[in-house]
Nucleic acid binder design. Structure first.
Lengths: 237, 237
DNA sequence: ATACAACCTCACGTCACGTGAGGTTCAAGC
DNA sequence: GCTTGAACCTCACGTGACGTGAGGTTGTAT
C-alpha cells in the first residue's frame, strides 16, 4: 500500500509555492519530506501536504515561522484550522469588497477626486493589507511587560473563579475587558478571529505562562461573552 | 488661501500607513513634505496625499519603490491609475472569493479532507498572494536577455507596420503572441492588468528601449486585440 | 514651569525567502 | 550504453521595505 508521493517541484507547482520555500521550511524544522530517494531527492506524502496547508494557513493569519512551529505541534484538529482560516478569509473578502466599492464609486463619479476620497481609499487599502502588518509587529518589544500583565490577569481572574464569582459579575467583566485589550495588541483588532485562535490555543494568553489552565481559559471565554452581552445592552441606540 | 495640511502622524493614521514608511518614502525620493514647521515638523498637502495614493497603488500592483519612482514622474493621469487599480482589485476579489468558496465547501462537507482538497486550497491561496510574488520576482536575472528580446520584437513589429501590414495579419499576430509571452513573464499572467499598465507606460515594453515609440505600442495594442479575436474564434467550442 | 505626546534624525536589525554557484540524479531518446 | 536536458541537491550571500530603539527637540495644555 504505497501512498501518493510528490517530489519537491511537483508539490511546489501544485500548491503555488516555490522549491526554495519548501527547502526553507525543512531547514526551519517545519516540514520534512516523508523520505528521500536513493539520489537524495525529497518525497512528500499526504501528511506533508496537510502540514504544508497548516503552515501556509497560519502564516496567512500573521504568525511568524517560529510561532507556527510551536503551534503546529499542538495536535490541533485540521477542521478547526480550516474554520478559522475561513473566518479570516471572510473578513478579507469584506475588506477588499469595501475597497473595490470605493474605487468603483470614485472612478464612476466623473467628478474631481478629492483628498478625502484618497485618504479613505488609502485607509481601505491598508485594511486589506492588515494581516501583513500584524505579522511584522510581532517583535520582542515589551514581551516581558506583556507576560507580566498576563500573569497578573491570570491571578486576578483565578481569584474570581475560586471565589465563585459568576463570569458576568462586574469585577470579572472588567478583567475580561483588560484581557481583550491585551489580545487586541496581538492581532490588530480582529476579535472574532482572535477568539477562534484562542480556542486553537495558538494565540494569547500564552500557553507557557503559569496560571493559564484550561479551566481558567474557559472561564475567560465566558467572561468575554458576558462582556460582549454587557456592551451590546449598553450600546443599544 | 491656505490649503489643508497634515502632520506626519496625522497622515499616517488617516491612511493606515506608518510614520516610518513616510520617512522612508522621503528618503527614497518618492514623497517629500510640502513644507516644514519652524521646528522641522513635516507638513503634507493635498498633492502629497495624491502622491501617496499613487505610491501605494503602484506598490500594490507589484512594483518596487525604485520602479515607482520612475513611473510616478510620468505625469500620468490619476483617473487612469484609479481604473487600473480597480481592475486589479476586481481580480483580487475574484481570487479571494474563489478561495473562500473552496474553504466553505470543505468545511461544510463533513467528509474527510482529501489531499487533493488541500492541494487545490493551497493553490488558491497562492493565487490570492500572487501580487506579492510578482514584486519579488523583479530581479536582475536575464534582464539583458529580456531586453534583447524586446528589441528584436520591436524591429520585427516595426517592419510589419512600415510595410503596411494590418494588425490582424498572420505575421503581426504571431509577433503579438510573442509579445504577450514576454509580458506574461513580467506580471504573472494578468493580461488585462498588463495591457492597462502598458497604456500607463509603466510596464513592458520598456520605455527606455530604442524602438518602442508610442505609435509602435499602439500598433501592438491593435495586434493584441486581433490576437484575442483570433483566439476566441479558434477556440469556440 | 511642567508634563506628555508628537515630532526629529540616525542607524542597526528583520524575515522569509530569492538568487546563483557548482555539482548530482533522473528519465527519455537514440 | 551514451547523451541530453530537466529536475534535483547543498551552500551561502543578498534582498527590500520598512521595524525598532536611541537620544534628542518641539508643541500644546495645565
Amino acid at each position: 500500500m504505497r501512498s501518493r508521493r510528490w517530489r519537491v517541484g511537483e508539490l511546489a507547482s501544485a500548491t503555488g509555492t516555490t522549491v526554495r520555500a519548501l527547502h526553507h521550511y525543512e531547514e526551519a524544522g517545519l516540514l520534512a519530506a516523508a523520505e528521500r530517494t536513493s539520489g537524495d531527492h525529497r518525497l512528500y506524502d499526504e501528511a506533508g501536504v496537510e502540514r504544508l496547508y497548516r503552515i501556509r494557513a497560519l502564516r496567512g493569519l500573521g504568525m511568524s515561522l517560529e510561532e507556527i512551529k510551536k503551534a503546529i505541534e499542538d495536535g490541533s484538529i485540521l477542521a478547526d484550522l480550516l474554520r478559522t482560516h475561513l473566518n479570516r478569509v471572510e473578513l478579507e473578502v469584506d475588506r477588499i469588497v469595501r475597497l473595490r466599492d470605493r474605487l468603483r464609486s470614485i472612478t464612476q463619479s466623473g467628478k474631481q477626486v478629492s483628498a478625502d476620497d484618497l485618504l479613505a481609499t488609502l485607509d481601505a487599502m491598508s485594511c486589506v493589507e492588515r494581516h501583513v502588518h500584524a505579522r511584522r509587529r510581532k517583535k520582542k518589544a515589551n514581551d516581558s511587560d506583556v507576560e507580566s500583565q498576563w500573569r497578573i490577569l491570570a491571578d486576578q481572574l483565578r481569584a474570581c473563579m475560586s471565589g465563585g464569582e459568576r463570569p458576568s459579575s462586574k469585577r470579572t467583566i472588567a478583567l475580561a475587558s483588560q484581557a481583550r485589550s491585551l489580545m487586541k495588541s496581538f492581532a490588530d483588532g480582529d476579535a472574532e478571529v482572535l477568539s477562534a485562535l484562542a480556542r486553537l490555543r495558538i494565540a494569547d494568553p500564552p500557553r507557557d505562562l503559569a496560571g493559564w489552565t484550561p479551566d481558567l481559559i474557559r472561564y475567560l471565554d465566558r467572561a468575554l461573552a458576558a462582556l460582549d452581552k454587557h456592551l451590546t445592552t449598553k450600546l443599544e441606540p
